[in-house]
Simulated assay, not measured.
Amino acid sequence: MIVHGIVLVIGLALAFAPFLFQDVRSAQVAARICVFIVLAASYDLLIGYTGIVSFAHTMFFGLGAYGAAMALKALGPGWDAVFLGGLAGTLTAAILAVLIGALSLRVKAIFFAMVTLAAASVMMVLASQFSEFTGGEDGIVYKAPDLFKPATKLLTDDDGKVLKLFGVSMNGKIAAYYFVFLTCLMLFLALMRIVRSPLGTVLEAIRENELRAEAIGYRVVAYRTSVFVIAAVVAALTGSVWAVWLKYTGPETTLSFSIMIDILLMVVIGGMGTMVGAVIGVTLMSLAQFYLKDLMAAAADATEAVPLLPDLLNPDRWLLWLGILFILLVYFFPAGIAGTLMKKGSH
């Protein structure tokens, strides 16, 4: 009950984010949280529900982003480019997932993890080397569809001026945010439907005891490959949405290993095998990444007269405190925040 309350509050905050938090930075953080909730949830489908450890999730995310980015660059800022580019990136991700899954999911978990890590590394190198198509290390800059331009008037008054709702102009920025929010909401609900379906039950059975699942007639490799493809497709679609929002795609924003580590931490903090844990984990981690430095700077100023403390609270040491926060969360919530609260609630 507590978990669902927390998720509901986060969901409402994201739904009304443009009106609650009106600065540019807050809009960026809210959109990132929406995208990463789906990305973390799709990864939870792999690691939490099926027991598959993969390091290639950002590769599929990047394929979707680069697909949309290259199409928008080549065809111009139209919906046809978003659709064709996103489709191309998603299909490529699905094909790669089938190949990797069919060839590697028969082996032990550690070997499969190494295969996915190698595939992700190769994709990172390819994105950097094929600069003619991908922009190399600099990435690609392009324009989003006209609907998302700040100058676009969604609602106007009698004089033709942009209408304001709760002090917020109804322009293209609002349209861009709700494109991200609604698309991510649909993808998240689709993932929730999967884990609550008979397929979700089979995946949990495979995670708990692979040999027993195979003994009672389930084709384990086929199921594992299928869920690997589903997770890859969702990650690629999310990448396309992220590309449209950012209007920039590069190796650091979509393919870097640090993003993969972030996703893993988000799932662990939220609670593996819960799906709603992704909402809590992503929100907590994103707020810490974007606002912990500001909080520490304020705390350092407030404790200026205290010896040593301002030095410890120096904003440059934010990663140290983020690490301590993570250790405390793992200690007090061993099954993740959602997982631990759910277990306590069931007793």
Rank of each mutant, 00 (worst) to 15 (best):
S26M: 15
L313P: 01
V125W: 02
C184A: 11
A13F: 14
V7P: 06
L20C: 07
I206H: 05
L105V: 05
S226A: 14
G139D: 01
F61D: 09
G135W: 11
G139S: 03
I263E: 03
A175V: 08
R193V: 04
L284R: 01
L189P: 10
P334Y: 10
T274A: 11
V82P: 09
V220N: 00
R193L: 08
Y331M: 03
I6Q: 02
T183D: 04
A56R: 07
I230Q: 03
L39M: 15
V122F: 01
P77L: 08
G136T: 02
T254F: 12
V202G: 06
L14V: 12
S240W: 00
P307W: 13
A41T: 02
V241F: 06
G76V: 13
L265R: 07
P310C: 09
A120R: 02
P310D: 04
K247D: 00
D262M: 09
G271R: 01
T134C: 07
A205H: 00
Y177A: 04
Y223V: 01
Q22V: 15
G160S: 05
A297M: 09
K164P: 05
G281V: 12
G67M: 08
P198Q: 10
G89Y: 12
C34E: 06
G273E: 04
A338C: 13
H57T: 11
S240G: 13
V115E: 00
T90N: 04
A232L: 08
Y248Q: 05
A88R: 03
I6P: 00
P315A: 06
L105M: 06
A69N: 07
L264I: 13
Y331K: 06
Q129H: 11
L96H: 10
A297W: 02
F333V: 11
L185F: 13
